[in-house]
Amino acid sequence: MPESSDAEIIADSVEQPHVFTALFDRHARGIHRFIARRIGAVDAHDVVSQTFLVAFENRERYDAAFPSARPWLFGIASNVMRHHCRSEVRAWRAMAASGIEVEPSFVDEVVDRVDFRAHGAAMAAVLADLHERDRDVLLLFAWEDFSYAEIAAALAIPVGTVRSRLHRARSQLQAALGTHVLEEINL
């Protein structure tokens, strides 16, 4: 028997509320990871908990046209994170100041030729300075591989707005990293 879609689970949960936990089992860890990368693992647990409570309260308004609830849940998580915006900015500034290394496994041998510590600091500084709306778009795009349409659904904004916010955020990121660096590592 094929696994129920998120939309089917949400629909079932209207009459059988406890089945909503299946959604938690599917997505809680992914949402935690996304949030933890922004504000730290400890606070991320609170955001995850609050996200699913809010989602449960609003389940009857879920648009069943979306089989996957990932955009919906990440959108709620992003809204819940608003309360942690200052914490996030502080975290990015601290990272920018300390130059914490980024994960090198993604870049194979290139790691030997590039100072990723400096790049991590540069990216953190950009993220700290970005407007939170632009930061949400950028990170959903980069970390979660959301399409423009999915980001639009998650944040309840038009696709055109997604494009403009992403363009603005990436421009700042590229400027901070420097074109020569990106060409050098040829990523």
């Binding site: 980024v102 870049v107 991590g120 990216m123 795009f141 990293l177 990106l182 990523l187």
Partner: peptide, 12 residues
């Protein structure tokens, strides 16, 4: 996509 690929490594 270079900047995005690099961003993927942040806090990974």
């Amino acid at each position: 996509m270079n900047d995005i690929t690099l961003l993927k490594t942040l806090n990974a």
